[in-house]
Design a protein around this nucleic acid. Structure first.
Lengths: 184, 184
DNA sequence: AATAACATGTAAACAGTTACATGATTAC
DNA sequence: GTAATCATGTAACTGTTTACATGTTATT
């Protein structure tokens, strides 16, 4: 059976700890967002293929929890995937398409667009920094041990923070450049 | 009629100059990549809706060129879109999913993964810088005029260059951190 | 001689989102 | 009392890629 790449991301969550579908969706948010309607079938497929097993936790008033756990074959499959060539990243960002055409609307429109982006990034930066800080506060020792899951998480957060900060600098530089065309 | 966001990216290309479907695919590559099988129907729809008109350029030995040009209604629609709220950007990047799980494979695997990324980014940086430079060499005056299309292009290239450079710094920093776990 | 670029498009498959179905519990 | 969170999933729709169909011309 051939799996798509999001399946490996799901396995990456289960490698760290047994999780429900609902949990997996939350955990994926930071590096590979997906809707629950996409995740539930993936978990079912993993179980059918023997790469995950399920434990049922009965609940009252809401659907019973299905706690998924990675099997040895699942773990082996995931670790194997790490040696394959990752496909080049793809980004879809309306802001870039808007910027591409904003010249036709004049400098004021460009300023509006870039200011909106700056606000978005500022908020985003705050969120990521907060999550990064709370990760470090949990157990700063684990975060620097490359054999621990939190090491990976820390690297990912740090990357995000750096990139967002750099795009903010770019926004400000671009806005600064546009100033002279607005004021005069 | 309601259009999806890639349609606006296509209109953004046509706003700059009349183009064939083949050309549009090439032009989109830098900020909103898409396959030709997705673009041809979009162009046909734009024409049907009256937002683009087609001029036929007969050729021998290969299909006649269909040169699309944006109409006034198309231009108005595009400029209107620039005032709407862009949806938050989404990125799909296998490398991030691999990094998320690489802790389970140990520091040497992490070094391999990051080195591969570094190589990819180094090549990518070279490409973008080259395209940025060739843009500047064409007409450096237009590039600083926010009423000209090349101003938008220059901003987009500069953003890419900055972000790639920042991710390269992050790679190197992370690799440096991993060194001590490998050598000893 | 082989490969890349030029040029159009359709059909099928895959990936991903939105809407639906269902409702208790918890926090404000 | 209102909104968010918890918890599962299916069906329909939209978006994107891959495979097919068909060749010529230019470059290496």
């Amino acid at each position: 059976m051939k799996f798509n790449t999001i399946t490996y991301s799901v396995m990456g969550i289960l490698l760290r700890q047994p999780r429900t579908g609902y949990d997996v969706v939350k955990d994926l948010k930071s590096f590979r967002p997906a809707k629950s309607s996409q995740i539930y079938p993936i978990l079912a497929n993993l179980e059918k293929a023997g790469h995950a097993r399920v434990e049922l936790a009965p609940q009252t008033g809401r659907p019973d929890k299905k706690i998924y756990e990675l099997t040895d074959s699942g773990k082996a499959l995931l670790l194997n995937w790490l040696d394959t060539e990752p496909e080049p990243p793809v980004t879809r960002d309306d802001f870039l398409s808007m910027l591409f055409s904003v010249w036709a609307k004049g400098p004021a429109a460009a300023v509006r667009l870039l200011t909106k982006r700056k606000d978005y990034l500022t908020q985003y930066e705050k969120d990521v920094v907060a999550r990064h800080d709370s990760l470090l506060s949990l157990d700063s020792g684990e975060c620097v041990d490359p054999g621990k899951a939190r090491f990976s998480s820390r690297l990912l957060y740090r990357r995000r923070i750096r990139l967002v900060a750099e795009e903010l600098r770019w926004c400000e530089e671009s806005l600064h450049e546009l100033q002279e065309f607005i004021d005069i």
